[in-house]
């Protein structure tokens, strides 16, 4: 199991860097080219959500990403330190029938997570008072190179 870890300050500019790193490691791990756009978007969504949450609750704390080559799967875990107990409520109220009523013109946590769920092959979201962990994974071929 090879792992790359990345921590970054809660600045929007760093989200692009995180996307680029995740896509590069996914390619190296053997994720199919056709899935790389999904990896890029899902990791970007998870990191954007974390940055917005940190800017509200704990701007000085870093956000952590782990990228792992795990038994034929490429696994990404994005961990933040912002309390996220309101997530269930946000997701429960999220209905896409009338997004004009619900969606403000800023990022909405539940909306980003809904996009991740639509993109990643396998997603687990662990909200807690100490922060949120989003784990997602995609299949990787045996021909991939080691992540590190």
């Amino acid at each position: 199991m090879a792992t790359v870890e990345l921590t970054f300050s809660a600045l929007p500019a760093h989200v692009r860097t995180a996307r680029l790193v995740a896509t590069a490691i996914a390619r190296r791990t053997g994720v199919e080219e056709s899935l790389l756009d999904e990896v890029r978007l899902a990791v970007g969504e998870a990191c954007s959500r974390a940055v917005e949450a940190h800017r509200l609750h704990c701007p000085g704390e870093p956000i952590r990403i782990e990228l792992r080559d795990d038994l034929g799967r490429f696994e990404v875990t994005v961990t933040d330190s912002a309390p996220s107990d309101e997530l269930e409520q946000e997701q429960a109220s999220l209905r896409f029938e009338d997004p004009l009523v619900q969606l403000p013109d800023t990022l909405m946590s539940g909306f980003g997570i809904a996009v991740i769920v639509g993109l990643a092959d396998d997603v687990q979201v662990y909200p807690s008072q100490k922060g949120m962990r989003i784990r997602m994974s995609w299949p990787a071929t045996a021909n991939g190179l080691s992540a590190v």
């Binding site: 996307r19 890029r40 978007l41 970007g44 969504e45 954007s48 997004p99 004009l100 969606l103 403000p104 013109d105 800023t106 990022l107 909405m108 909306f111 980003g112 996009v115």
Partner: peptide
């Protein structure tokens, strides 16, 4: 590239 932040701006 477009993410949900961009979608929010369009909405």
């Amino acid at each position: 590239f477009l993410d949900s932040t961009g979608l929010g701006v369009l909405v």
